[in-house]
Simulated scan of single mutants.
Amino acid sequence: MRAAVAGLLLCVVAGGLCQAEPVSDLADGRVGAIEFASRTPTGPTEMMAGGGRPTTIAGHLTLPNVAPVPFPAMIIMHGSGGILPGREQDWAARLNELGVATFVVDSFRPRGFSSTGDDQSRLPLAASVTDALTALKLLASHPGIAKDRIGIIGYSKGGQIALYTTLAPFRRAVIDDDLRFALHIAFYSSCSIPYKAEEVSPAPVFLLLGGDDDYTPAVHCGRYVDFLRSKGARVDMFIFAGAHHGFDLPTPVRYLPRAQTARDCGLDIALDPVEARRWDTGTIVPPGDISAYLRSCMRRGASYGGNPAARAEADAIVEKAVQRYLLDRQ
């Protein structure tokens, strides 16, 4: 799998995009490197209107070497640093061992960049949400995948995608039937500028957060958990003491002076209708003033790196969730 993903990324870097025609379904049962058509909306309003520039993005599909077929599957969404050594591919390998197919989505390199860590405006969250839901629709067409047992797991920015794909207005913007994710797992997601909706998915949601995370503070996610639960969502939140952002990585903790963080922000963005409201004052922020507010609250610098104890706990939690909700083993 590592060699195949490396080949895919080399193709993207060397030629912008690989020359294969993007696929609209996987009825032929293909695996490996796959290019598929998505969109790049500038924000939630354009996404929910069905707009956005057509974009070809890439992913890598791996099926487990076990029986039976069809397999449950997990879509894996990377963070602001893109697909990192020791994270997305390692989690894919672990999930494959459990009997779960994996589809590692690359939202960055096919669009011409490798990271948004120092400038989150390079790619709107609505575009990554579109990628994830489009990937779900694509995987559901594969004869070897159980369409009712597809989950999503994401890290940092990808964790936000794992959360926001629970929101019905986003799902309906891409999927026109009852297809939905069966499980949402979010690692160290930012919850400082959350999207909200009146209708959320009934699928289980797991948040795995670092107690010492100064990049995406866990306390903000507690607030978002309360919101999701108020809408009937089944949510479990785990906070690992002493763990920083990226606690599942094999690298030591280090300080990133250029990292852009929303830790001092607090803005709810409702989707139905679209409306932004500040936490501190309760006042509505007009669309034209949102950028100015974000410039005022964004900060630079955060810690980032692994914590073996937290990783081991997270591995056990993910395995238990997968066994119960994707593999149907109580």
Rank of each mutant, 00 (worst) to 15 (best):
M1S: 14
R2P: 15
V5I: 11
V5Y: 15
L9Y: 15
L10G: 08
V12E: 13
L17I: 07
Q19R: 05
D28M: 05
G29E: 02
G29I: 05
V31L: 14
T40S: 02
T42V: 05
P44E: 02
G50P: 00
P54A: 08
T55L: 07
A58G: 14
L61Q: 09
P64E: 08
P64C: 15
N65L: 07
V66T: 08
P70Q: 07
P72Y: 15
G82I: 06
L84Y: 03
E88P: 01
D90C: 07
D90M: 03
L98T: 05
F103R: 00
V104M: 01
F108W: 06
F108V: 13
F108I: 04
R109D: 08
R111I: 06
G117P: 07
A135N: 10
L136Q: 14
L136V: 12
L138F: 08
L139G: 09
S141G: 07
S141A: 11
G144W: 11
D148A: 11
R149W: 09
A162R: 15
L163S: 12
Y164Q: 08
T165R: 09
L167Y: 05
P169S: 05
F170Q: 00
A173H: 00
D176T: 10
D176F: 04
D176H: 13
D177P: 01
F181R: 07
A186L: 08
F187W: 08
S189P: 09
I193N: 12
P194K: 01
A197S: 03
P202G: 10
A203N: 14
L207P: 07
G210N: 08
G210A: 09
G211T: 10
D213T: 09
T216R: 05
H220N: 12
G222Q: 14
V225W: 14
A233L: 03
A233P: 04
V235Q: 02
D236Y: 14
M237V: 02
G246T: 14
P252L: 06
Y255I: 02
P257I: 10
R258V: 15
T261P: 11
R263S: 11
D264H: 15
C265V: 07
L271S: 00
P273C: 04
V274T: 04
A276T: 12
I284C: 08
V285D: 13
V285W: 10
P286T: 07
D289T: 12
S291P: 09
S296V: 03
C297L: 14
G301F: 10
G301K: 11
G301N: 09
A302H: 03
A302Y: 03
Y304N: 10
G306W: 03
G306K: 08
A310V: 02
A314G: 01
D315H: 12
V318F: 01
E319A: 08
A321C: 06
L326K: 06
L327V: 01
D328G: 11
R329H: 09
